[in-house]
Design a protein around this nucleic acid. Structure first.
Lengths: 251, 251
DNA sequence: CGGGAACTTGAAATACCTCAATGATAGTGG
DNA sequence: CCACTATCATTGAGGTATTTCAAGTTCCCG
């Protein structure tokens, strides 16, 4: 695994080619969302100017590391980013998996340092937004400010998937349903997708032993809930899986 | 327990008495923080105008309820506010306890509804800030905008106290240390304080059985870590309690 | 003083973890 | 192309922390 950190690098070259930047940005969730909220052309132009396109990053390359000075947030355009912390005992603690359309780095604003590591799990493309600049722009553009507030608000108190009172089955079901829905929201198939993370990562995220993940997935398979071949997942009985997840997701 | 909801009520009377409002606000964490960030007098005046002082609320009175239309955030000035959700099975899920100086309601921005209930555990005083108005003001005052961003950022991905891989002892220690530090930051004693919440609430928050909370506290007592008489807590061996909490808090 | 809630305490049940060994997969170099 | 290795995944058996169930106790408020 490369230990090079990609993110802090300021790559001005991507800003030079304006046409390309704009065309890329049409697929960028962040800009899109702002657009759909009635931002005018000129405003959108301002936003595009401060976007940097980062990537592709290969699996194992870090976007940022814990303790790095905070300078920018980023929207995932393609691939999966894992955020994690390293325990004082040297153990990894997986905090989350970030799919295309999702924004990382928002939790670094508070003390101007990234409080966690972010690493690419596969080939990742990012849109990087300098935070000082987007904050400045936000004071001129109420829609952008509101969008940032909403974005951050959504990440507060995310229903803890790893609460103790839910069973291993319920949490795994919730994990799969969560992935399914988030992928669906981005136009991917909600029934068939790839797990870009290892069993160990899933276990770590759900705060369980890897063996438990293995057993639960196997049980799901033999119960006809899903079909799993390596990291390929096909959800067979969505209603039943959702029923299981209900205990965690509440909707 | 009264089921009346206090928060949505707009009480303009508190705004009338300007002198009183201002003197109260000198103790209001929210305004204070803005002040300390170099906001000028005029700006501070603008902020004070949109503050409403709510309370006192009695134990059991709700600040807001899940599903209520979002209109404002609030800073706790005195007392403790508990946030919780009701499970589909009718079971309560405690999300957090909010002490003086802490802000509630930030997680409601996203879909313009409060995603949880907020109830006073004792006599509570609040500063209420209309969100549309404070957001508008924020676009004129970069310091205020930055403060709001920081406030929200801090609440993202709070180290989950109820992760499965920590023992009951570690989580309880972390809970007590957390309270201690937060109270200390507000000028209260870090060694002696009152638990304003019931054992059941603590258990629910830590995602364990009330019996476990009881047993752990008693063990702490007999190990000479703390002295507990009903809801009065005195921390005897802070270093050892912190050492226990370290596994959860990472610092 | 009585009634009810909150809290404590004990014994049994259980879901999950740990430990240990085996099986699959992919990447590597001969 | 095929062993070879390393990593990841699976499977089984036994142990344990915590829950659950059930019974007391204390405290508080009317």
């Amino acid at each position: 695994m490369s230990s090079r950190v990609i993110f802090p690098r300021t790559d001005a070259s991507v800003l030079a080619d304006d046409g390309d930047t704009l065309s890329f940005c049409s697929t960028c969730a962040f800009s899109q969302a702002c657009l759909s909220e009635g931002m005018d052309k000129a405003a959108l132009m301002d936003l595009h100017v401060l976007v940097e396109h980062v990537g592709p990053l290969q699996a194992g390359e870090h976007v940022f590391r814990e303790g790095d000075a905070f300078g920018a947030i980023a929207a995932v355009r393609a691939g999966t980013v894992k955020t994690y912390q390293i325990d004082r005992d040297g153990h990894e603690q997986v905090l989350g998996f970030h799919l295309p359309g999702e924004v990382i780095g928002l939790n670094a604003i508070h003390d101007e340092r990234y409080p966690c590591n972010a690493v690419a799990l596969d080939t990742v493309m990012l849109c990087r937004f300098s935070f000082p600049r987007i904050a400045l722009l936000a004071s001129r553009l109420p829609n952008l400010q509101q969008h940032l507030f909403r974005l951050m608000s959504r990440d507060i108190g995310v229903a803890s998937l790893f609460a103790r009172d839910n069973t291993a089955d319920e949490r795994m079901a919730a994990f799969l349903i969560g992935l399914s829905r988030r992928l669906a929201a981005r136009g991917f198939s909600p029934r068939r997708f790839q797990l870009t993370m290892s069993r160990t990562d899933i276990a770590n995220y759900l705060r369980q032993a890897p063996e438990t993940v293995s057993r639960v997935l196997r049980r799901f398979e033999s119960d006809g809930l899903v079909h799993i071949k390596q990291r390929d997942v096909e959800i067979i009985d969505l209603p039943r899986l959702e029923a299981l997840a209900l205990a965690v997701l509440r909707d």
